[in-house]
Simulated scan of single mutants.
Amino acid sequence: MTSRVLLVSPAMSASLRRARFDDGASIEDGGAARARSAADSLPSLARVLTSPAVRCRETAAALGLDGASVPELAGLDVGRWRGRTLEEVGAAEPEAVGRWLTDPGCAPHGGESVRELCARVARWLAEAPAPEGRTLAVVEPEVVRAAVVDSLGLPGSVFWRLDVPPLSVTELSGRAGRWNLRLGRPLGGPEDG
């Protein structure tokens, strides 16, 4: 049986706007309003899940969804860089940021490497999809990137080259080991099938 997993990126937040590593900030009012207006466009769902992040749980609530928070769907653990902007970290640790952005196995912040995140999301994808119907998960953009890397068997080096806009839908259909991918449809946008 074919499973369908819809990954929805969170609404805009001040942290996202400033390229700040997640600091627990809430989504912006405009992002919440956009999510509320897109709520009616969601397909029927068998299961709803969220990342534990505040902005993901708030986005789900704005969409009118009550989903279980799943630790495996947490965003990338950036250790001591949490709450700082990429610009701040780049000014203080330019070599570390350069390595981090080019080597998927590097974790100079003391947290999780991109490779580790991709492996975590791959394990979730192998076990999580509902056997019937759609699973919708509101997750951080880096979790969407990790799912794309895993589902297409891409090298981790492409991770940072995948853009995930706020309130976009990335759909996986198939099953673990054989996924088809539909990328970046705006939430509330047309669905072709």
Rank of each mutant, 00 (worst) to 15 (best):
L73V: 02
V139P: 05
L65N: 13
V158R: 06
V70C: 10
A119R: 15
P129C: 06
T135V: 15
G67P: 02
W100C: 05
V97Q: 10
P71R: 02
C118V: 15
G79M: 05
S157W: 12
A92D: 13
V139F: 07
L167A: 06
G111F: 11
G98C: 07
R47M: 00
W124A: 00
G79W: 10
R55Q: 02
S157C: 11
A53V: 00
P129E: 00
G156F: 13
G79E: 11
A91Q: 14
S69Q: 01
A128M: 09
E72T: 04
R115V: 07
P129H: 03
G83V: 09
A126D: 15
R134W: 02
T135S: 15
P141H: 03
T102M: 13
G90H: 13
R134S: 14
L154K: 07
T170N: 00
V97E: 06
V169I: 05
R161K: 10
R55E: 03
G133K: 08
R115T: 08
G156K: 10
A91V: 14
E93C: 12
R82W: 00
L154M: 12
L73R: 07
T50I: 02
P155L: 07
V148S: 03
T85E: 08
R161C: 03
S69C: 07
D163W: 04
T102R: 15
E112C: 05
W124P: 07
C106H: 12
V121Q: 00
A61S: 13
G156V: 11
R47N: 04
S157P: 03
L65Q: 12
V149G: 07
P52F: 05
G75S: 09
P129R: 06
V70P: 12
V89A: 07
T170P: 01
A147R: 02
L117G: 07
A126E: 15
D103H: 14
T135G: 13
S51T: 02
G110T: 00
V54A: 10
R120E: 00
A74T: 04
D163N: 06
R99V: 10
A53H: 03
C106T: 02
V164L: 02
R134L: 06
G111A: 11
T135F: 12
V114Q: 12
V149M: 04
W81E: 13
L152M: 13
V143T: 10
E87I: 13
L167N: 05
G79I: 09
D66W: 06
E93G: 14
L162N: 03
V78L: 11
W81Y: 13
L152Q: 12
A61Y: 08
H109S: 15
A60W: 05
L73I: 02
V139G: 10
V114N: 11
P131K: 08
T59S: 10
P71A: 08
R134N: 05
L154P: 00
S168N: 00
T50S: 03
